[in-house]
Design a protein around this nucleic acid. Sequence first.
DNA 1: GTGCTTGTTGGCCA
DNA 2: GTGGCCAACAAGCA
Length: 281
Amino acid sequence: MPELAEVEFYRKRWHLAARGERIRHVDVHAQARVFRGCDPAVLVRALQGSTVEDSAARAKQMVFRFRRPGLRSADVWVGLHLGMSGELTVAAGHHRAGPHDHVVLRTSGGKALVFSDPRMFGRVQFHTGTAAPDWWSGIAPAILSPDFTFASVVDFLQRRRRAPIKAVLLMQERFPGIGNWMADEILWRAAVHPARAAGTLSPAEIRRLWKETRHVARSALVTIAGRGDRLPRDLNVNIPRTWLFKHRWRKGGKCPLTGTPLAHATIGGRTTCWSPARQQE
DNA sequence: GTGCTTGTTGGCCA
DNA sequence: GTGGCCAACAAGCA
């Protein structure tokens, strides 16, 4: 599930519960695939006794920064990617780790921060140092940053001109945080058929796509993750029925704008939903 | 049993 | 070297 806005929702959930607390104990499923490329034993040793300093989300990735009392200059950076089925929850301190709970951080405030991921496409990364690690600082500039310019999208679509626009929107190097449902939402709002080759879009269509990419990113963040320190009780509780999101998986789902039936097919290797009345090939 | 699934990566091929 | 496609990864669900 987790795309840009869901990642921010989960980050905030841990952040609001744990900011400033000390990690008293760490449980890991050391053999879980989510630890590929990092040694869970080192992670446990580094986090034990540290304090949750702050956190951030970028694209589909987040980082939590911990401070160790003895290490003045070096922070501990823990990166989390939620893959297809990852979740962050906050449970009571005595929470017993289930089979899919790969990391449990028990805090001085009597809480358990749980990272669970049944399918294990998610990933834990880890770094100690004063500067941010490459896996964090190398993430493409955010869609809502000034670097996400119309010209940069024009260039990128030209470079990927033969690929279906749906596949291009999923490329994290230019559209960081966009996943399957957000890509469909953007194309639907921009009235562009998902199977169109990226190089065939007119300047006006690219402009709509660029504008709607930013709109969907901005409104998904506010709707799903809330504003400021407020966190919705659930991920989907505030999503309006005017979004394609609310209709795309229903059998016999209808386009909320035209009232006509939605279509489904595999495009760019991914399940895609669109409104044929609105998005013409 | 079958056939899906909101993600990413590496290998193959043009 | 670049770009595009697809299988693989794994577990749950209908």
